[in-house]
Amino acid sequence: MALEFSPETLKKFEETVARYPKKEAAMLPVLYLAQQEFGCLSPEAIEYVATLMEQAPARVQGVVSFYTMFNTKPIGRHHIQVCRTLSCALGGAERIMALIKRKLGIDLGQTTTDGRFTLSEVECLASCGTAPMMQINDAYYENLNEEKTEKILDSLK
């Protein structure tokens, strides 16, 4: 049951750590590796990273809980993150959010039953000129309107 990096990931881990002046500085990239490998940063994953990084598990947990992009629980395949800060709000972000909630039948923080989408509200994504917009996993979808939003969601399996 103990979690472990695959040999390939372990190699990536070692290469990553080698680039930094001190091992502990590689904490964020290593956590990303773990999140990718294990799906989320569960207590087991955190404990494993702590061992690899030679840090106390409590410290790693403190770090994980601080940043919004680390998930401690599994999420859907497509993480929809709709920006809610001022420029996007002025541009109609609320309508887009309402549409997504309606279409997918989920509320903030929830995942569709088929595991396809998780919905979150996030703060400014540095895309204010193309508001309203959302981020899904690593991609930005900008200049949204209702129609565009629907199309995007339909296209994501």
């Binding site: 930094y20 840090q55 403190g62 770090v63 919004t68 996030v122």
Partner: peptide, 26 residues
Amino acid sequence: IVHRGAGAYICGEETALLSSLEGSRG
């Protein structure tokens, strides 16, 4: 080294950025 943050506005403050880069909370 290109170092990726993990979602925290405060890490734009220079000393918070350094804390984050040291592997700690920002």
